[in-house]
Simulated scan of single mutants.
Amino acid sequence: MTLRIWHQSVNELDRIKAYKRGIEAHAARFLRDEASVVVHGMPTGTYGELSPSDALGNAYLYHRVLSPIVEQAVEAERQGYDAFVMGSFSEPYLREMRTAVDIPVVSLTEAALLTGCALGGKIGMISNAPNVAYMTRNSVAKHHLEARVSAVTSLLPGMDEYELIAARDNPQAMIDAFTTRARELIADGAEVIVPAEGVMAEILAAQGLTRIDGAVVLDVFAAAWTQAIGLARLRRGLGLGVSRAWAYSRGEN
């Protein structure tokens, strides 16, 4: 049977429909018949007049608007999905979701870091804006991978999700800005470059950018879906799922 993956964005996809279409097209090209990806977003109006990049820097707003995502993972399991992908580098409530469901829960950040560790010794991460880079640094620390990440930086000047999607049909200026930052990281020892923001990462994947000066530019969506498929197969074939000791315990011990 074809595996089904619930891909959860933190964007209001009604406002950036090209992003949703881009993820779906990318999944179809990359996964073919191996798995199907269904893309979900946040309700229209979630962030008001703000972009997600601007809104999620506020811890209270982050909690208020993103805590319902835990129930999205529960709903994915209820509907029979094989895996849930948290398609945001802010990776909200990752521990809570893994506590709540038995299906694999994968995040873009963690999957990118783990894949990057297999492809090179040092990882450089480029976000779309400084506040997203700050959240990404916190995620790197949460996964205890600071020693493998040379730096987390951002585009100059920064671009929010709506500015990025507006540049989707003519992305050369954004690609040039990304390449400039990547070369700085590569000169400092980075061997794998991670585009650490979903909209930007989808545009770069669609443009086929996979290497800069010999360093890998990671397709973070492909990395996350591949990890989700692997974990789903382990669960189907061996009954091997998330640990219930300590971090992801349900209080049964």
Rank of each mutant, 00 (worst) to 15 (best):
H144G: 01
V149I: 04
M159D: 15
A167W: 15
A151S: 09
S150L: 14
S150C: 14
A167M: 15
G158E: 01
A151C: 10
L155Y: 06
A177N: 15
T153E: 06
A166P: 08
V149L: 03
A151R: 10
I175K: 06
D176Q: 08
Q172D: 15
P171Y: 15
H143S: 14
P171W: 15
A173E: 11
N170L: 00
A173Q: 05
S154G: 09
E161R: 01
P171C: 04
A151N: 14
D176T: 14
P171D: 05
Q172K: 10
A147F: 03
T153Y: 08
E146H: 09
M159W: 14
A173Y: 00
A177P: 12
A173C: 14
P171I: 07
R148W: 03
S154R: 03
Y162N: 13
A167R: 11
R168E: 08
D160H: 05
D176N: 13
D160T: 05
I175C: 07
I165A: 04
E163L: 10
P171T: 12
R168T: 02
T153A: 03
L145Y: 10
H143K: 12
A147I: 06
I165H: 04
A173H: 02
V149K: 00
D169H: 06
L156R: 08
A177C: 13
I175S: 07
R148Y: 02
D169M: 10
H144C: 11
L145K: 05
N170K: 01
Q172S: 15
A173P: 01
L164Q: 09
H144P: 00
A167N: 05
T153Q: 09
S150A: 14
E163I: 09
S150W: 15
A151Y: 12
L155T: 06
E161P: 04
H144I: 07
H143M: 12
E146C: 11
A147D: 08
D176C: 00
D176G: 11
I165V: 15
T153I: 12
R168I: 07
A151M: 14
Y162E: 02
A167S: 04
A166T: 09
L145N: 00
P157W: 15
S154M: 02
K142M: 11
L145P: 00
